[in-house]
């Protein structure tokens, strides 16, 4: 037997080159977001939806794209023509989440679906004096832990004065996003490179803002913090709320504890509410 003849090798080479010339440019166009439509190339965009929980159904314009799981928490949908799309994420026992997203050619519009449970548990926090008779709706802490709660609410309160005044320092910062309480309003600001604004600040991919009001109205915001994937804030008039950090419609804000004068702190990753002299631990997220 002889080695492969030059002629046959040339045939292999030519076939490889032809296959390369056909498939690889097609792959490049595909990767760039082009698709063939009526014999012409149309530049498309995409949507990337990440979800905070598993077992949530993700739909775009009513078409189900999939269900999140322990390992799959996001969906990438590409080849979408330039248009507005309604993204819904739903899970039983959670507030329905809907967002209207604008898709532009060659750009992926990403969004984080922050699902909030419809039912949250409140457990009153007691000092450990006698364990007998403690109900499941209560949590017993030691005197020192209780003192820590008192200290946390006394020391870091951002409760504004009777006449709200502007503050130049953020009340909270996370990954370049800053929360400001100014004149009783809650403002979310982007503090880093203006060319790298997160999509949560962009009404459309090419139309971004550097700040937006999360709460602006009759209520007076007195405290705000990042919590889980959203923002928790307290108003003087209406209590404590949990909201998502996104300018795009429709913003989701739900009440957590609706008693005027209540306040909150995030202590060791837990949301603690103070109403008068009573403390509550909020769970069930």
């Amino acid at each position: 037997m002889q080695p492969v003849s030059m002629r046959r090798r040339l045939v292999y080479l030519v076939l490889s080159v032809i296959a390369f010339m056909i498939t690889v440019p097609a792959a490049v166009f595909y990767a760039s977001g082009y698709r063939l439509e009526d014999f012409s190339l149309v530049e498309t965009g995409g949507v990337y939806v990440s979800v905070s929980t598993s077992d949530a159904v993700v739909s775009i314009n009513g078409k189900e794209e999939g269900t999140t799981s322990l390992f799959v928490r996001s969906f990438y949908v590409d080849r979408l023509n330039e248009d507005s799309y309604s993204v819904q994420v739903s899970r039983e026992g959670y507030y329905p989440w809907t967002k209207k997203l604008h898709v532009e050619p060659s750009i992926v519009t990403d969004v984080f679906a922050f699902l909030i449970p419809q039912t949250l548990s409140l457990r009153e926090i007691y000092i450990d004096t006698d364990e007998e008779g403690v109900a499941s709706t209560t949590r017993v802490v030691s005197q020192s832990e209780y003192n820590s709660l008192l200290k946390a609410f006394a020391a870091t309160s951002t409760l504004p004065s009777a006449k709200p005044s502007a503050t130049s320092t953020p009340v909270a910062t996370r990954a370049g996003v800053e929360l400001y309480v100014e004149k009783g309003n809650l403002i979310v600001r982007w503090s880093r490179d203006t060319k790298a604004v997160p999509s949560s600040f962009c009404v459309e991919p090419s139309s971004c803002v550097y700040e937006f009001f999360l709460e602006k109205g009759k209520d007076t915001v007195k405290n705000a913090q990042f919590f889980l994937g959203g923002i928790v804030y307290a108003t003087k008039e209406s209590g404590v709320f949990l909201a998502e950090n996104d300018v795009r419609p429709v913003p989701l804000t739900v009440p957590v504890y609706s008693r005027p004068g209540s306040d909150f702190r995030i202590i060791n990753g837990e949301l603690i509410i103070k109403d008068g002299s009573t403390f509550y631990e909020v769970s069930g997220f």
Partner: peptide, 8 residues
Amino acid sequence: ASVLSYNL
């Protein structure tokens, strides 16, 4: 943020 980045 580009489609190319996601598809690469």
